[in-house]
């Protein structure tokens, strides 16, 4: 009990130090936050009412974001099938699945926005780098999910079909796949939802989609237009989630 009290004290002290250090070293002045009231009010005032004339840009940007998410997810699926097999504990020896899992962990560790910036540098502006970035970033998670789906399959029905005299392809089709399919579908839809959410901001680094307009309007002080785009993004996120909940219910 004593040692637990002690470690609690140290944890508290560490958090306190971190907060104090952040205030002391960065240019964060509490006085500025206090006096920001009128400025904030003015800012919000300039957002209201949202400018409805940008519907065309919103539609164009949303469609591009949707395309980035769809093609990015497709790319991630294609990459995740071989990588998922290579990362599964039951299909390949440790010498293969350990490095494969490590590589996927590395990919997962890089934020999407960073991958997108690198891709913009590599292939130029537009939705193409966004799509490639989503495909790479999403593979880090999706391939791990696929590997877990493969490893979660029960051995007994596979053994039973072996006993029946079914070949390897027939076993894959009728014993392994029916067990994996719902998990794979659920995880892919989940990843698609994340891809769509995350790719909303890709335009900020020039990788295509609706984020481009948010950045343009904020930088040019057209806050009423930025407000319209922000509202559109909120509506899209809610719609995606509702769609996903409905889909997931089907695969339960």
């Amino acid at each position: 009990m004593r040692s637990r009290g002690l470690s609690g004290f140290f944890a508290g002290a560490l958090v306190a130090c971190a907060v104090l250090w952040s205030f002391a070293t960065v240019d964060v002045e509490l006085s500025r936050l206090m006096s920001a009231g009128p400025r904030m009010a003015g800012f919000i005032g300039r957002m209201i009412p949202p400018d409805p004339t940008v519907m065309g840009e919103i539609a164009k940007g949303s469609a591009e974001t949707l395309r980035i998410a769809i093609l990015g997810t497709l790319g991630a699926i294609l990459l995740s099938i071989p990588l998922g097999i290579l990362a599964s504990e039951t299909m390949v020896p440790p010498a293969v699945h350990r490095p494969a899992r490590l590589m996927l962990a590395f990919i997962r560790a890089v934020p999407l926005i960073l991958v997108a910036m690198l891709m913009v540098g590599a292939v130029g502006l537009g939705p193409l780098p966004g799509m490639i970035a989503v495909a790479i970033h999403a593979t880090g998670m999706l391939a791990k999910f696929y590997a877990e789906a493969i490893d979660g399959v029960s051995r007994a029905p596979i053994e039973a079909l072996e006993s029946v005299g079914a070949g390897p392809l027939a076993r894959l089709r009728f014993a392994i796949w029916p067990q994996m399919a719902p998990v794979v579908a659920r995880d892919t839809i989940f990843r698609f939802e994340l891809n769509l959410r995350e790719s909303l901001i890709l335009g900020i680094v020039g990788a295509g989609g609706i984020g481009f307009y948010i950045q343009t309007y904020v930088r040019s002080f057209q806050y009423d237009k930025a407000a319209s785009v922000t509202l559109a993004v909120i509506v899209m996120v809610i719609a995606i989630e509702a769609f996903n909940v409905a889909l997931r219910r089907r695969f339960a």
Partner: peptide, 23 residues
């Protein structure tokens, strides 16, 4: 098999048809 070893998410007919795979 003692624990049946059926494919749980497939239909009864598909499972029985699986018995034909070796033929």
């Amino acid at each position: 098999f003692q624990e049946f070893a059926l494919v749980e998410r497939s239909t009864v007919f598909r499972n029985v048809l699986n018995g034909r795979l070796g033929r």
